[in-house]
Design a protein around this nucleic acid. Structure first.
Length: 931
DNA sequence: GGAACTACGT
């Protein structure tokens, strides 16, 4: 800009742009007339205005202030207009400091009036100082519509909807009503905080003040009803509208889309065209967003083609909603394909596109694609923006690239709490608890306040990494030190953490405490606590949680219903699983897998096959888990060829790479049917290294079918894999001893003695009529009654359908109580501890049930018409009418995994049994239970 | 006389 120095008598020489000089009238009459005085004043004002705004627009704030001060010293008062223009300059250029100076000077010369005050409100608000804006507002003598509009507009921009609605009521209290501009703002606020009552009130006010004809206002009412999720009201309002425009149609269509009712939205779209309204870009974008979220690829493509045929090009919103919608509906690779298509179509992504695409990469853990998008963000110059940066941190964390995540973290210019939480969460997930803690401490020193999420992330990080004390400590101090209120997620972090640590009892205690403090469990809580209760003796607790699910209307959430199916099945109640399954209006692959696995657990392979067929009929594609289960089911049914056929279909038909669970199911399939050589050959041909479960499965099969030669091989391989496992030692010794290799047996025994492993004590728990009794091996006190009874039936059991197994279980003697295994006492206690034979007995055993006891359970279930549910360390046995759901295959030596034992002992030791209403009766008191 | 600031979609 060309600058000229012009001499000036009253002011020091200053530079003024040529355009201003040109704009100045050049002629003055020598004698001042009334008009010319007016003109001169006006010119002076204009000159001052231009002069000051010139200084401002060039950033010469100090000079501007000096000029103002020297003007006021000379007694020339700045006009309100000048102040307003200056304040506007401050807004436009974000010169809040100058604005404050002006505010001070205006107050000093007492030149404040509603006009400038309103402008001051705008200025403070737009520069991000809402509190100062409010201070001006509160200090005002009189407020008019403009003032209210400025103040309400300020809260609206900050999305502080509640304050907007509050101000609306205050405004009405002062006898003022919004106009056609302000009503939409307030309605938007009501919609966003779902304040239906206020919307209804405004609706009636609008009718009374005759503003219903205004499209903006009535469209805003319509939108507010939609946002309050009152679609019936919205539809009624829409139907009653005298006039509708495209926006009205879009609003009602958006309402159905938000509810996921794409069909109704589609009908409205057609009706809209029929009534002569052309759907526009926004209409198509709404519809496409809806179908993208539903993951309906075909319809999205169809709609996009249709809009393009109407001459409407997909814009950045169209593509972005497709990308984010598909990412959210788990069709993540499709979402990333759309990102590519968008770039090819030459549409420039915006920050939200980048965020959506990055989060898609995060869920896919696709580092390659994530890096590409990071490059895009860098090229667009938005990689350091907080929103984009946050999603990049998340993506790198999920791809386990913590250093890259940290690099992004360090480069983000203005970190918000999400930035910190993402980084801390990333460290926690990766197990770097120390780094997370370090960052957490740094955050507490920064000017960003940790929020409840930060604390929750830290708690779950600590507990997942095993630092239970630190987790509890954080949980205790968060409210006092952190000034955040615990929420459901805080409790969930602890419950899920304890569940992962296998501390079921502590998880249940936290769950109880949570409820007693009136925190409502949500679906996450339910999903953490249900697996804890998957136990034949916890049915009451499960029903209690089921009740809680129904009260909170959580049964419609698929994962919750799926978990209920799974938990009931694992707890012996497959009928309940089925009832829930049948009652579900929508089912996903997990639903089908849960019920199928449930039936298999109960030995009902036919039901599993039937459901598998039905599932395919419904067009649900089986996944990895389904196929493993079905092979397992063919194993139980002894249908080897069918099982093999399913195995080959994994790769051929379903294009899935078989994993260890499929190989295990195949070994079991061969093993059960006695095709041990096939099993061995299958294991040797496996492209992945067989693990403990594979060899254990083979060993079980060898025991069942009496193949000592292969048993020794399996035991040797097991011993190689887990040299410190004492159970495997014992198996190996027994196998050698029985195979006639006593020298080897002795040698191994010597080695085994040197290892410090302790043998587990056998224990079992029996529940009869909601009372729980513990039997521990080695405790022989006061068991005469049971002993006598057991001896009386021993002979009968032997005659009953005995399967002659290869016995390598000789060492179990030491676990016995008075010559019997503890579960036999459990059977006896269950049967004779009250006057009637119970319909069912439920037992949990820490080790694996032996063949002998298994036999007795079968006998009892037939002779006494009493079903026995026995959950041992490996399997759920359901004895009924002389048969067991495991098909007699799952009994034998004690388990390799002693987890169940550990869990159960902790219940007793801590005195907190999971059935609140079921106190544990100690063994010595068993006689009292009869009365 | 000035000032408030224009509904539906990421």
């Amino acid at each position: 800009m060309e600058k000229l120095a012009i001499p000036c008598q009253t002011n020091p020489p200053i530079s003024v742009p040529a355009s201003i000089i040109k704009a100045r009238p050049l002629k003055f009459s020598s004698k001042p007339t009334k008009t010319s005085i007016f003109f001169t004043q006006k010119l002076t004002t204009k000159f001052n205005d231009d002069h000051l705004s010139y200084l401002c627009s060039n950033g010469l704030l100090r000079e501007a202030i000096t000029a103002i001060d020297s003007m006021s010293k000379r007694g020339s008062k700045l006009s309100t207009n000048t102040y307003i223009n200056l304040l506007q300059t401050c807004i436009d250029a974000d010169f809040i400091e100058l604005g404050r100076e002006l505010h001070v000077r205006m107050s000093l010369v007492d030149q404040v009036n509603p006009f400038v005050e309103t402008k001051l409100i705008s200025m403070y608000a737009k520069c991000g100082f809402l509190k100062d804006a409010r201070k001006v507002f509160d200090g005002m003598q009189e407020r008019n519509l403009y003032t209210w509009s400025a103040m309400i507009g300020a809260y609206s921009r900050e999305q502080r909807w509640k304050e907007v609605v509050e101000l609306f009521f205050l405004m009405m209290g002062e006898g003022l009503l919004p106009d056609a501009f302000l009503f939409p703002k307030i309605l938007q606020a009501c919609g966003n905080c779902e304040d239906l009552e206020t919307v209804k009130l405004i609706h009636s006010v609008v009718i009374r003040c005759g503003l219903s004809f205004c499209m903006r206002v009535s469209n805003s009412i319509l939108t507010a009803f939609v946002k309050c999720r009152k679609l019936s009201l919205a539809r009624k309002f829409f139907g009653n509208m005298d006039e509708r425009d495209g926006v009205s149609w879009n609003a009602i269509i958006a309402g159905y889309c938000q509810k996921g009712n794409g069909d109704e939205a589609r009908r409205l779209l057609d009706a809209m065209s029929d009534q002569g309204f052309k759907p526009g870009l926004v209409t198509y974008n709404i519809m496409i967003a809806c179908y993208s979220q539903l993951g309906n690829c075909n319809l999205v493509i169809e709609l996009k083609k249709k809009m393009e045929s109407m001459g409407i090009a997909a814009d950045v919103y169209t593509w972005t909603s497709m990308i984010s919608g598909f990412a959210q509906s788990s069709r993540i690779s499709q979402a990333l394909d759309f990102f590519n298509d968008m770039i090819l179509a030459g549409v420039e992504p915006n920050a939200i596109t980048i965020v959506s695409a990055t989060s898609a990469c995060a869920s896919l853990k696709s580092l390659q694609k994530g890096l590409e998008i990071h490059c895009f963000a860098i090229k667009m110059g938005i990689a350091r923006e907080v929103l984009v940066g946050n999603s990049l941190i998340d993506m790198y964390s999920k791809c386990e690239k913590l250093e890259a995540a940290r690099h992004v973290f360090d480069t983000i210019l203005e970190k918000d709490i999400y930035t910190w939480n993402s980084m801390i969460g990333g460290y926690c997930q990766a197990g770097y608890c120390g780094k997370a803690y370090e960052l957490f401490m740094r955050l507490r020193e920064s000017n960003v306040m940790p929020n409840v999420v930060t604390w929750n992330v830290m708690i779950s990080g600590c507990i997942q990494n095993g630092d239970e004390d630190q987790a509890m400590n954080l949980f205790q101090i968060m409210e006092k030190d952190g000034e955040v209120r615990r929420n459901t997620a805080s409790w969930n972090s602890l419950i899920a953490g304890y569940h992962q640590l296998g501390e079921k009892n502590k998880a249940l205690a936290i769950f109880r405490q949570m409820q007693s403090l009136n925190f409502s469990p949500n679906s996450v809580t339910i999903l953490s606590i249900l697996p804890v209760c998957a136990n034949v003796m916890a049915e009451r607790k499960i029903k209690e949680i089921h009740g809680c699910v129904l009260r909170r209307n959580l049964e419609s959430e698929l994962p919750v219903a799926n978990s209920l199916i799974d938990t009931y099945a694992k707890s012996g109640n497959i009928k309940y699983s089925r009832t829930i399954f049948d009652g579900m209006s929508s089912k996903d692959i997990i639903t089908w897998n849960s019920i199928i696995a449930g039936y298999i657990l109960h030995g009902c392979s036919d039901a599993a096959f039937h459901l598998f067929g039905q599932m395919k009929k419904f067009g649900i594609r089986p996944n990895r888990g389904t196929l493993a289960s079905i092979i397992h089911a063919y194993g139980i049914a002894g249908m080897v060829d069918k099982g093999r056929h399913v195995f080959s279909s994994i790769t051929e038909e379903h294009q899935i790479l078989p994993t260890l669970d499929h190989y295990l199911a195949m070994v079991e399939l061969y093993g059960r049917s006695g095709r041990l050589t096939d099993a061995m050959e299958f294991i040797e041909d496996m492209p992945i290294e067989p693990d403990v479960s594979i060899w254990t499965s083979l060993l079980t099969a060898c025991r069942f079918h009496g193949n000592l030669h292969l048993a020794v091989q399996a035991a040797e391989r097991l011993q190689e894999l887990e040299p410190d496992n004492h159970v495997i030692y014992r198996l190996l010794i027994q196998a050698y001893a029985l195979y006639g290799k006593s020298e080897l047996a002795l040698k191994v025994r010597k080695l085994g003695k040197e290892s410090t492993m302790n043998k587990c004590t056998a224990q079992c728990w029996v529940e009869v009529r909601n009372k729980v009794q513990l039997f521990v091996s080695g405790d022989q006190s006061k068991l005469d009654v049971l002993n006598t009874w057991l001896k009386s039936i021993e002979g009968k059991v032997k005659k009953f359908n005995y399967h002659n197994q290869l016995s390598i279980d000789e060492e179990q003697k030491e676990e016995k109580i008075g010559g019997f295994h503890c579960e036999k006492f459990a059977f006896a206690f269950g049967l004779i501890s009250s006057s009637h034979t119970p319909k069912s007995i439920k037992i949990v055993k820490n080790l694996r049930i032996c063949g002998d006891c298994h036999q007795m359970a079968k006998y009892i279930s037939a002779a006494h018409e009493c079903e026995i549910y026995l959950s041992d360390s490996k399997c759920l046995h359901h004895f009924k009418k002389g048969h067991c759901s495991c098909g007699d295959y799952c009994c034998g030596e004690s388990s390799l995994v002693e987890q169940v034992f550990h869990d159960l002992r902790s219940y007793v030791v801590s005195g907190n049994h999971f059935l609140d209403s079921c106190p544990i009766v100690c063994v010595a008191h068993y006689n009292c239970a009869r009365h």
